[in-house]
């Protein structure tokens, strides 16, 4: 089975009001072609789950600047002033999450876990409204799993079965997000035949990936 689809078919999967995970860290390892196509399509009222909101002219930030985002769940928004402005004006909801917590919440969703217990955030605003558990004398926050309707990820090399290899620092949230959405689309820097990636080097097994779009 060949999972390749066109960019038009890929963005057609993303509908108004959906919750969308987007891979990348400050635009490194983000699916740039899909983001550009979403900007062009103008799909709106999205909830974006991502490490950060990139920059105003690069990465996830383009969707924010174009007014397509209703809510952001991220760890850092400081590199995109537009995110802060829209948040302060009450035009976009922003939920800030410690980076390691967001990673584990996504991993938990993908791994069928009911949440994670983390000591991070105790004594800070992050703990407000959350259950705390004491285990062996140490206090932990209960953080719930985070999943999405669609995950849009980027891989350096992808075979037609959807197996993904990520180069250098482009992994970041991509392999986690690939496990935690109803539909997963990977933007491939290079598409190769089955067997074109040494199975030892597969970082996201193809079973997690629904569709492949060439970058």
């Amino acid at each position: 089975m060949d999972k390749q689809i066109s960019i038009e078919e890929a963005v057609a999967q993303v509908k108004d009001g959906m919750t969308v995970m987007i891979g990348g860290f400050l635009a490194c390892g983000s699916p740039h072609r899909i983001i550009d196509a979403l900007v062009q399509k103008g799909v709106k009222d999205l909830t974006i789950i991502a490490n950060d909101t990139g920059f105003i002219d690069k990465g996830i930030g383009k969707l924010v600047v174009n007014g397509q985002v209703k809510k952001v769940v991220a760890t850092h928004i400081g590199t995109n002033k537009e995110t802060g402005r829209l948040m302060n004006e009450g035009k976009m909801e922003v939920v800030l999450v410690p980076q390691g917590t967001l990673a584990e919440q996504i991993r938990a969703a993908g791994a069928g876990l009911g949440g994670v217990l983390t000591p991070i955030g105790i004594g800070t605003p992050v703990a407000e409204g959350k259950d705390q558990l004491v285990i062996d004398g140490k206090t932990y926050l209960l953080e719930k799993p985070v999943k999405a309707d669609i995950a849009l990820i980027a891989g350096t090399k992808v075979d037609v079965k959807g197996n993904v290899f990520y180069r250098e620092a482009t992994q970041n949230f991509n392999p986690l997000m690939a496990t935690a959405a109803d539909l997963v689309i990977v933007e491939a820097g290079e598409v190769v035949e089955a067997g074109g990636i040494d199975p030892h080097l597969v970082m996201t097994p193809g079973l997690f990936v629904d569709y492949i779009v060439k970058a």
């Binding site: 950060d52 760890t75 948040m87 410690p98 390691g100 991070i120 955030g121 800070t124």
Partner: peptide, 14 residues
Amino acid sequence: LVPGMGGAMDLVGG
């Protein structure tokens, strides 16, 4: 100024 905590809370905590 609300840039977000990024990885700082995890780093300081861990």
